[in-house]
Simulated assay, not measured.
Amino acid sequence: MSFDFPEMVTYLRTPLGDSVDVASMKILKESFQDAKDKNVIASPLGVLTLLAMESAGAEGENREEILRLVGTSDYKQLEDNYANLTKNFVAMDPSYLVLANKMYVSAQYTLNEKFSVVASRSYKSDVERVNFAEKKKTADSINKWAADKTKGHISSPVNEGTIDEDAALALFNVIFFQGHWHVPFNAEKTEKKKKIRVIKTTFIWWRLPYKEKGFRMVIVLPDEKNGLPAVVEKLSQRGILEDVFNLRPSGEEVALEMPKFEIQTSHNLNHILPKVNDNITLAW
C-alpha cells in the first residue's frame, strides 16, 4: 500500500489518555509474560473500566489498590473521567464501535443500592441476578448478552468452566471495533505470503488512521527477529503515547505490507493485576 498520512487527521492528548496508556502497557507486559503463546491480544481499556466501576462499591484498602492500579488517588476524578469516557463510547455509531458493561450478582446477595446506581448511571452497566451454581445457565446468559450487544461478533466469551459457583459478583465488558482505513489497502494487490518484508532499523513505527474520527492503529516492530520482549518492556516503562504524538508524516511514499491474522487469548487477571499494581506509579 502506498500512502502518506493526511494532516487533517488529528488526535487530542489528555491526562486520562496518558494514565490509560501507562496502565495499559503494564497490563500488556504482564499479559505477554504470563502467556505461554506469545501471540497475545489484550483489552486494557475494558479491564480498567471494570476496575473503575468496581471501585464504586469498594472501600478502604480495596479501593486504594484499585485507584493505584488505574493511576489516580482521587476517586471522584476517577468516576468522572471514566463516566465521561463510557458516555462517549456508548454514544458512538454501533456499526463500528460497541462498548458494553454488565454485572452479574449472585442471587444469594443484595446489591448495594448506591453502587447499583453508580454502575448504571456512570458506567451504563446492566445488572442481572443469577445462581452461579447453575453454571451452564449462567454461561449461556452471559454469552447471549455478549452476542446481542455485538451483533454476534462476540458470541462465546465464557463457558461452564469459567463460572465460579462461589462468586458473589462477576463484571463483564465487551468491546467490538470495526474501523475503515482512511487510505484503504488495494484489494487487487492482496496475495498469500509466508513472511513479511521488514526494513531493519531501530523501533519501526507506523501510524494508520481510520476514517472513524479519533481512531488509529499504531504498529511498533522490534529491530531484530526476537526483539519483541525488549519492545514490550520499554513501552511498559513509559507508555506509548509520547512517541505516538511525536510521529510525523514521512514526507515520502511508503510501501507497507500487513498480514491478515486472527488471535484469541485467555488471561487470568488474578495473576496479572497484582504484578501490575506492584510496578505502577500515579499518573494523575
Rank of each mutant, 00 (worst) to 15 (best):
S106N: 13
A170G: 08
V198Y: 12
Q178I: 01
W145K: 01
R216C: 09
K149R: 14
K114Y: 07
G179C: 03
R216M: 12
A133L: 06
S116A: 15
F115R: 08
V220S: 10
A167F: 06
R197K: 15
I196L: 14
K137M: 13
P222C: 06
P184N: 11
T150H: 07
K195E: 15
H180R: 07
A146C: 06
V105Q: 05
I175P: 01
K149P: 06
I142S: 02
S120H: 11
P157T: 00
P184Q: 10
V183I: 09
Y109P: 05
I196Y: 10
D223G: 15
G179P: 00
F185Q: 10
K135I: 12
D148C: 00
Q178Y: 05
E165L: 04
A147M: 04
S141P: 04
T110Y: 15
T138A: 01
D166R: 14
L221C: 12
A139W: 08
N173H: 15
W145L: 04
N186G: 00
D223V: 03
I196H: 04
N143V: 01
S125C: 12
P209A: 02
A119S: 15
K151H: 14
Y210C: 04
S122N: 15
Y104H: 12
Y104S: 07
W181T: 00
V183G: 01
A146G: 00
H153M: 02
I204V: 05
I142C: 02
I196F: 11
E160Y: 08
H153Q: 09
H180M: 04
L111A: 10
T150G: 04
V218T: 11
S125D: 14
A170K: 00
V158F: 00
E224T: 02
W205K: 04
F177E: 06
G161R: 04
V105D: 09
D223F: 07
V183C: 06
A107V: 10
N112C: 08
K137V: 14
K192D: 15
K211T: 02
K136C: 02
G214Q: 13
Y123C: 12
I219P: 06
S122L: 12
E134C: 03
E224D: 11
G214S: 07
A119L: 08
A107T: 14
N173E: 15
I196K: 08
A147W: 02
L171A: 08
H182N: 10
I154P: 00
S156M: 05
F185G: 06
E113I: 07
A107F: 03
H153A: 06
I163R: 00
E212C: 03
S120Y: 09
I175T: 11
R129K: 11
